[in-house]
Design a protein around this nucleic acid. Structure first.
Lengths: 137, 137
DNA sequence: CTTAATGCAAACCGTTTGCATAGAT
DNA sequence: ATCTATGCAAACGGTTTGCATTAAG
């Protein structure tokens, strides 16, 4: 139950936070924008302001509950923090996002960073392309 | 000479465009933001408006003279289009950008895209870390 | 009761755009 | 002379923030 996750993060358990967590857990598309969340919550009795959505997502990110991605210029996309790291492949037509992991690539990255004298803090590999569905159309 | 590059791109040869091209060619740091360019041009007799810098960079990008990157949320970064593709490793402290290429990673990416049914259009691998210099401090 | 969270509207920041003027061909 | 490029200031879109109000502990 997410209730404890929130407490652990030092955050009070409030309706907006619970709703957003729940939405992140249950949404069909794992990768959602702040506005997606805002709209999804719109009709739901207790509405949540867009500013609050952003604040909550930022706090969740700080708490490690959520990861934020900036795939292209536009808006940020959030996903529930996974146990394990993964990279993304994004359809440039329909914006669908899928995930993948490749151990060889991971290792090469570490090797490159080390060779170049960097202490690696993070990395993002994004492949852009046209997905199977969109290629048919 | 860049004069012909501009003509080839169907762009009139103007002072702002030449200055920006020149700056991209000669700047110590290959990866610069629009504002970097704007500021660098500030004191230079013929000043160039920030809007023009953006317009010119956008045109250069369309013409394939320049590549634009969105490393993190902030502002875009531009570099003269290289003959050959490369990826980036960015220092999160000083924002220095270095380049690298790794054939193994390139191949794996193609394989992954194919396996997932994507027709790859582009990809961006960005490693973030702390560079040698910044680690000393 | 105390302290943190929310909603709203206003501020922000990088980027884009409309429009009248200046410049290239 | 024509048609594109520039500069300025205003608009934009996503995100953040100040402040008074409301709710959690």
């Amino acid at each position: 139950m997410s209730n404890t996750d929130l407490r652990k993060a030092g955050l009070k358990v409030t309706v907006p936070r619970l709703k957003i967590l729940e939405l992140l857990e249950n949404s069909a598309e794992k990768h959602v924008s702040a506005e997606d969340i805002y709209k999804a919550l719109m009709g739901s009795g207790d509405e949540v302001g867009l500013a609050t959505v952003y604040r909550v997502l930022t706090q969740f990110e700080a708490a490690g509950l959520v990861n934020r991605h900036n795939f292209e210029g536009g808006q940020s996309v959030f996903e529930l923090a996974d146990d394990k790291h993964h990279d993304h492949i994004v359809c440039v037509k329909c914006n669908k996002v899928e995930e993948f992991v490749d151990d060889v690539i991971e290792q090469r990255q570490d090797a490159i960073a080390e060779k170049m004298g960097f202490e690696i803090t993070d990395h993002a590999l994004n492949i852009f392309g046209i997905c199977k569905d969109c290629r048919k159309a």
